[in-house]
Design a protein around this nucleic acid. Sequence first.
DNA 1: ACCTTACGAAACCATTCGGTTGCACTTGAC
DNA 2: GTCAAGTGCAACCGAATGGTTTCGTAAGGT
Lengths: 120, 120
Amino acid sequence: MQPFGCILVFLAMKRDIFQAIADPTRRAIIALIALQAMTPNAIAENFHTTRQAVSKHLRILTECELVRQEQKGREIYYSLEIEKMKEIDEWLEQYRKIWETRYEQLDEMLATIKKQKEEN
Amino acid sequence: MQPFGCILVFLAMKRDIFQAIADPTRRAIIALIALQAMTPNAIAENFHTTRQAVSKHLRILTECELVRQEQKGREIYYSLEIEKMKEIDEWLEQYRKIWETRYEQLDEMLATIKKQKEEN
DNA sequence: ACCTTACGAAACCATTCGGTTGCACTTGAC
DNA sequence: GTCAAGTGCAACCGAATGGTTTCGTAAGGT
């Protein structure tokens, strides 16, 4: 067990992105700030929770680098780190391969059926 | 509040697929059974947990229809419902659009820079 | 200077989660 | 019929989660 490896992993993986998008409120926040940066107060106006609760969600999203913050005076603008979303896409890739293969098999099967029909 | 509406929603949305894939063990189970159906015992052999813990995970995965079960004698084979994975893909689609747009903008910018260079 | 605004952090709480242990049920082998 | 194997379910437990309330702090308006 290499201690440095553990520390590095710990620093790199503060939070799990899949756990971050598990919460519906956090997914809604992501959708909100996807197109334009917003302050915590502005975000909180869209939910039936307190600003502090939103702040906690933003902290979690920031910890897994899904969200970027930019201070402007006393306001902090949060925006989506769209690059990070690709990680989910990359994870999905292995399964996309599977369902695409299924489709090809289905196409082949349908082609075979059609052929048989034509022969009769 | 319509009681029937509530019941229907409850029946339809037993579990959230995003919450299902949030747990790393469940993601590992999904990866395991993606290619071939497996029994709970066989799945559990791959983890440092009890069979019952795996059983609970399988229950959660089944509840959100990510996993299908097929009884064969006293064994139950679990396999991945690949179609359900598309739901994640569909959710990602809106963000894929954003990052693809970003790429196009980047390409345009690079093209402009190149052009300016050539003009000088 | 003083007050308001915008925000994060800490303390606290009820609920959920992931895990274990123990038990009940069904199926197949003898 | 009896026993072992394969499984799900309930009860329990510690830890994590999502929320609120309270407080501290820094920036802007007057």
